[in-house]
Every structure is written in structure tokens, then in C-alpha cells.
């Protein structure tokens, strides 16, 4: 890649106020570095990944509203987590976390366990019990 070809496309890097560093060759064929504001193919890939996550959050929300899952699954998606990650954060086995997705079981959870989840998601217990709480 020539230095003049280092992409300067619009991206969210710019709005966060930083450019990334790239290696490219100058006119003499010597390697040098050049700052880049972003590159479209990557921006699209990142945007798509974000859209996928938002989709997952919306689906989880719908499931909570239809009482098909517990708010834990919704907050898990909201925090971009999956089951293994959530399990390691709360320190509870995956199969038990999965059971806590069951709305009936969820209502029976002890305050201690609820607090664990609330701490991981950085919310209070009321918010954990009701995904629309405070919104």
C-alpha cells in the first residue's frame, strides 16, 4: 500500500477523536507510517456487528415482554455478552445461568443471586427485575 493510498474514510474513530496508524510505502519505496481516519470496508463490518447486537437485544426484549425469558438474558445481550462470558463474570456455572433465563425460576431467585447479576450489569435489583424500570 502506498502512503497516498492509506484510507481516509469517514468512521466512528474520528468522532472519538483518534486516528489509527498504518504502515505504507512512500514514493521511494521506503516503509513509513501514516495516520488513517478509517476505512470503509472495516466501518461497514463494525456497523454490521453493532446492528447484529442491537437486533439480538431487540429479540431478547421481545422475549422478556412475552415472558419467554428472564431479564437476565436481555441484560446479557445489552452488555454484548454471551453465556460463557456472563457465567464467568457472575461466577455461576453456565448451566445454572441458563436455568436463570427461565422466567419462573427467575422470580424465585434469592436476593443474593439477584445482587450478583445486578452488580455485573451495573444496575440495581429493581432494574434487573423490570427491564423498563427507570426508562
Amino acid at each position: 500500500m502506498k502512503k497516498s493510498d492509506v484510507p481516509q474514510d469517514k468512521s466512528n474513530l474520528k468522532s472519538s477523536g483518534f486516528k489509527e496508524l498504518c504502515y505504507a510505502v512512500d514514493e521511494k519505496g521506503e516503509y513509513t507510517t501514516e495516520k488513517s481516519t478509517g476505512w470503509e470496508p472495516k466501518t461497514i463490518a463494525l456497523d454490521n456487528a453493532m446492528e447484529d447486537i442491537n437486533e439480538r437485544i431487540a429479540i431478547a426484549k421481545g422475549k422478556v415482554e412475552r415472558n419467554e425469558t428472564s431479564p437476565i438474558e436481555y441484560y446479557m445481550e445489552l452488555a454484548k455478552m454471551d453465556l460463557p462470558i456472563l457465567a464467568s463474570y457472575v461466577g455461576i456455572w453456565q448451566w445454572r445461568v441458563k436455568r436463570h433465563f427461565n422466567p419462573k425460576r427467575f422470580t424465585k431467585l434469592s436476593n443474593k443471586v439477584l445482587q450478583k447479576y445486578a452488580d455485573v450489569f451495573e444496575i440495581n435489583k429493581e432494574q434487573l427485575k423490570d427491564i423498563n424500570h427507570g426508562n
Binding site: M1, P7, E20, C22, Y23, S36, W39, P41, K42
Partner: peptide
């Protein structure tokens, strides 16, 4: 491929 700053390569 892109992480941060690999310039596409």
C-alpha cells in the same frame, strides 16, 4: 483482519 491499524493488509 482489521483490528486497529493494520491498514487492511
Amino acid at each position: 483482519q482489521e483490528e486497529i491499524g493494520t491498514g487492511g493488509g
